[in-house]
Design a protein around this nucleic acid. Structure first.
Lengths: 157, 157
DNA sequence: TATTGTTATACTCTATAACTATA
DNA sequence: TATAGTTATAGAGTATAACAATA
């Protein structure tokens, strides 16, 4: 039985899901070598690039819920990659600061992921890569736009 | 703070993840209107397109583990969309058959998802859509190829 | 009254080991 | 012995309600 999912392959959601599901385990494997997971890695990157931001801003940047961020920052702090420092302007908030060790690890992990990226995109032209990046951002924005609308018009034409 | 995740946006895995995470809730909402989830919908589609296939073949087609398929088929059977019929050639296996109700629901759900697809891909040219489909399949195959190799060469250059 | 970080919780998805019945 | 379907289970990821401290 070949291409038993032929019908599904026409749907963008299914295409995205298959490609993402295939790629994520490889991303996970690379990050494991650095003692990181996707959630801790992406948080670390944003803190390194935006030192001093607070947890709410970090959650917004990564589109994750604040409660789920708590344990992620806990892990980064335990690994001495990020520090929670009390914000002086707003004493409710923590200003997140990367440690030197965090900066160094982030750089090495990013380089490894860039090498994986080249393998994932093998066979694609430079133009293909740019088009992919552009299209995925359009789809993401379209999805956010749809979210603000009513789903009824889709399900019942 | 704008584009706090700028560094991450360069990575294909992150691009894929963001687009997929934004799109999946919309897919879920559409399918909920039909009493389906992504897993039950995709299984239903494959059974309708390939009546008589068994659960192992279905699991392979959708790249899901067989144990996880059991409850999915249970749900489809409880909803009278699919029937498990004992295979005559191999009495260990079930031949999965769609019911008329299953065929009808699959068709309506697919039409609704195609309408969602048009919204998700709004602003893309016909060429963009074809390129996206092609690129995502390449990435999926590349990921499967990487999986068969050693990750060490990626993490430690 | 609203917001930041937190706790507790629950639900889905995914993955693996081990069982049964057939082959 | 190997395979098809199953059971049980465990780990992520994700989502919401409610609380304390502060604004």
């Amino acid at each position: 039985m070949q291409q038993a999912d032929r019908t599904l392959r026409h749907l963008t959601g299914y295409q995205l899901r298959r490609a993402t599901s295939a790629a994520m385990p490889e991303v996970n494997k690379v990050l494991e070598e650095f003692g990181l997971r996707r959630s801790t890695y992406s948080s670390l990157v944003v803190v390194v690039a935006n030192p001093g931001l607070n947890q709410g801003q970090l959650a917004d940047a990564l589109a994750i819920e604040r409660p789920n961020l708590v344990q992620i920052v806990d892990q980064l702090e335990r690994a001495k990659l990020v520090r929670r420092t009390k914000s002086v302007e707003d004493r409710r908030a923590y200003a997140l600061q990367p440690t030197p060790k965090g900066c160094e690890l982030e750089e090495r992990a990013t380089r490894a992921l860039e090498r994986l990226d080249n393998l994932l995109r093998e066979g694609l032209s430079e133009q293909d890569k740019e088009i992919l990046h552009r299209i995925l951002q359009i789809i993401e924005r379209n999805a956010e736009t749809i979210q603000e609308r009513d789903v009824a018009e889709i399900s019942t034409p």
